[in-house]
Structure formats: C-alpha cells, structure tokens
Write a protein that binds this DNA or RNA. Structure first.
Lengths: 214, 214
DNA sequence: GGGTGTGAAAGCCTTCACAGCA
DNA sequence: TGCTGTGAAGGCTTTCACACCC
C-alpha cells in the first residue's frame, strides 16, 4: 500500500523558506528571553503573526496558549528540521571573482557549511590559494566530493560551464546545488537546486521602478 | 475617481520574475532565428509552455497562431517592460569581500546596470579602488546618489548596518534595493526590496537533503 | 496542421477569525 | 485574560484544454 506508512506532516515549500529567518530571529533574542510570542517573531521576521503560527504548527505544537513559544526548545526543533545538527561540507566550483569572494567569506563555516574544497577548470587558477584552500583541477571533482563527504555544490562558473558542472556534481553524488551562474540549469528529480541570479534581480527591480515612474 | 484611468493590464509578480529569464533565452537564440514557439522558449527557460503563453499574454498579443513569436519584436517589448531602454546606475554600499567582488565583476555594466559608486563606513577602506572606482565615505552617500542619478542600491554591509543603510538610501531618493546582508530589512510602500541571503539558501538546501536521507 | 490566447479548474499560500487551553 | 492552533475563506499561480486564427 503506497502511502500507507505513518506520514510525517509535509512542510510547504513557502514555510521551509521562512524557517531559516525564524531561526535567525530566535538567535538574536537576548539569552534571558525564555519565551516568545508569534507576534514578536513576526515583527522580527517581517511577516504577519498568523503566518508564523501556521508555519510553526507544521513542525508540531511547540507553543503554550496564553504564553508563547519556548525559545530554547523551538530553536532546537528548528535546527533539527533544517538539518543543522551536523556540518554540510561545501565545494565551490569556479574560482573567479565571486567564487573567490565566497571562499574568503568565512560566514559559511560558522553556520555549519564549511567550504571544504575549491575547484576550477583553468590551469592558471589551479594551485592558487583562497581562505586557506588550494584550488583543485576540475578533473578531481569526483575525488574531492568523495574524500570530503561533500553535500552541497556551489556553482560560480561562467554560464556556459554551469550545466556540465551540475551534471558532474550530480554524477559524483552531490544532490544539493546552489547556482550563481546566469543560466538555467536543470536537474533530475531527487536533486535540489536553488539559484541566485544577480542580473535577474536587477531586472526585476528595474521593472517595478519603471512601473512607478510611468 | 481612483482607478478611473485607463488601466494597464497588471502583470503578476510571478510573471515579472520570469521575464528576465525569457529575455535571456531570446538573446541566446541564433541571429537567424526569426520566430520561436512557446514550447521552445519553455524548454530553454525550464518551465512549461502554457506558462510561457500566459506570461507573454500579459505583455500583449505578440504571437502569431500557427507560427510563434517574432523574436526581435518580443525582445524589444520585453526590454521595454523591464526598463532596459536606459541604464540604471548602481551604488554598492559595504566594500568587504562580497562588495569588492561585485565591484570587480563587470557583468553589471554590460547589462545596463553600471556600478557608478562604492561607499563604505570604514576609513581604512575609503580611498581604496575597485574596478576603477574609489571608495567614498558613508557620509557622502546622499551626494553620490544625487550626482550619479543612482536608481538602485546594493547593500553588502554586515547585518548590523543594513537597516540604517537602507534608510539612508531611501532618504537619498533610491527606491530599489538589493540586500545581501543576512538580516531582515523593511522598507516603506513604494520602495522595492529584493534579497539574496546565502545562509538561508544553504539552510533550505540542507532541509531537503535531510528530508531525503531520513 | 500548428501554435497562440484564454476561460475554467485545480492547487498552493496567505489571511481571517475564533475555539480552546494555560 | 492572553495567545496558540487551525478550519475556512480568499487570493494568487499553475495547469489544462480547446476555440480560434494563420
């Protein structure tokens, strides 16, 4: 009987995308704040209180009526849901301006996503060092992934290379990808893809600006 | 009579966010491709054909039944909708790793968003040069905005400074903001805000990865 | 025949409003 | 009394399916 197993309540995508914001809000509360209301959380996350309550209800019922949510407990449940109970090593592929900046950034390691390796196809770039890591050749991608137990691949190559890199990452066993290259990348079912496209963001902004002016 | 003016058909947000992708797909077609079908565009944009047709229908009826869309004409209509008929100068505020990388990136100017100025609050950073631009002090933000006719502000400061920078940008007359700082920034009505949050993207990926493994 | 344009259906997400519990 | 948890309503987005035109 398919679907017969005791089903874990499915969490909507829109909710998943907000959990990290709530978690950050919780972490910003002073250490002696023991409970927080949906309205406080809503203010600090920039959404409305009903949405916070609905979102949190998908994780289970962790609030107390008349009181609010236990900060510590909510943090730990959220960390569990987001998989922050262990590290997720990351490989950055494509060490140009952006890739190098991310390698030097440091903010990833702190948050449980240590940059474990850098890879580039250009022989002139291979061997250079950023943030304490030596850039490896593209040919060693699969080895690097295996060796470091890489869970997430970050693509910062030019657009033309992005699909091939994604295919290689998937082939090597990575099934979470963050794509910064300005092109559409497609992945099979069972692989997660998120994208950050600066040119697209700019164009969306100028669309609305344009609208306002006319 | 509010709403009495001849109303331009409102374009849904979800559609606006896809227009830049379609435009890019159109630009990638070889120069001798005169028409394109919704299905071709859909393949190259990674969406389905009905969605392409609906999206394009908001711009007007630019297709020919049995034939497809005129590539050149569609490009020009799309450029017009996205406000790409003129440049939108950009200021980058916060010249750390990421800000400097964006300043050097160069891909913005090509696409109609020239980086016109760099601003930082740290006296040690002010005066240094990236991509041919000298970093200006935070105190000169309003002057810089006025002088260069800045339309878009990019925030790459630490989280703690982001809201103040946004307020200062808005005060100076900027009403499109792209925020890279890992914090919630709120803006008044009439100002557009887009955000890129790397830590959030990572956490979303690890959520789904986690799901898959359990 | 081929492919657009679009009502209508279906699905997803947000918001409301209030029952229910501490 | 105060605040959570949640059905129900409403709004937005996607997808279907087909009339219509080249």
């Amino acid at each position: 009987m398919s679907d017969g197993e005791k089903e874990v309540k499915r969490i909507p995508d829109a909710t998943v995308a907000r959990l990290p914001i709530y978690l950050r809000s919780l972490l910003e509360l002073s250490a002696d704040t023991l409970t927080v209301s949906s309205e406080q959380l809503a203010d600090s996350a920039g959404v409305n209180a009903a949405k916070v309550r609905k979102d949190l209800s998908y994780l289970g019922s962790y609030g107390t009526r008349g009181v609010g949510y236990d900060v510590e407990y909510l943090q730990s449940q959220m960390r569990r849901a987001l998989g922050l109970t262990h590290d997720w090593p990351v490989v950055i592929v494509g060490i140009g301006n952006l890739g190098a900046a991310l390698a030097n950034y440091g903010g990833f390691g702190d948050r449980g996503y240590p940059v474990a390796a850098l890879v580039d196809a250009d022989p002139d770039v291979v061997g250079t060092e950023y943030g304490g890591l030596v850039v490896q050749p593209a040919s060693s991608l699969a080895d690097v992934v295996r060796e470091h137990g890489i869970g997430i691949g970050v693509i910062t190559t030019p657009a033309a290379a992005a699909q091939d890199v994604a295919d290689a990452l998937i082939e090597a066993g990575v099934n979470s990808i963050l794509n910064f290259a300005p092109t559409v990348v497609t992945v099979p079912d069972g692989v997660s893809l998120r994208k950050v496209d600066l040119a697209v963001e700019m164009q969306i902004l100028s669309f609305y600006q344009q609208r306002r002016e006319s």
